[in-house]
């Protein structure tokens, strides 16, 4: 039983090291058409210097709407769990 655990551990370590060695280099995306479009046009189209804000609030506004909904659900959940049912 002990050797099975050690073997599984070694296989996992080998897998992770291999994945890290074969990993795609950081900062060199396969497809960069979208990034180039945002960097080239966001300043003029959305009128903001901060490209991140123009992506979050303009190009992908639905994502922010969902995040706001998640926050609302969190508040409702906390209020439901922590409500005072009886004195």
């Amino acid at each position: 039983m002990k050797w099975i655990k050690v073997g599984a551990f070694l296989v996992m370590v080998g897998f992770l090291v291999g994945v890290a060695a074969w990993m795609h280099p950081f900062g060199v995306p396969w497809a960069s058409e979208m990034d180039d479009y945002f960097i080239a046009n966001a300043q003029v189209e959305a009128g903001a210097n901060n490209v991140v804000t123009s992506v979050v609030f303009d190009y992908r506004g639905f994502d922010t709407l969902g995040e706001a909904t998640v926050l609302l659900c969190a508040v409702v959940g906390v209020a439901l769990v922590l409500r005072r049912t009886r004195r």
């Binding site: 959305a46 009128g47 903001a48 609030f57 303009d58 926050l71 508040v75």
Partner: peptide, 27 residues
């Protein structure tokens, strides 16, 4: 500059501040 972006920032900032604040207050 920014069109609706600053106004949306204010709306979301108000929402997040009040939401997290009410979570902390309820806790």
């Amino acid at each position: 500059t920014g069109g609706t972006l600053p106004l949306m920032n204010w709306a979301v900032g108000l929402k997040v501040a009040a939401g997290l604040g009410s979570v902390v207050l309820l806790l």
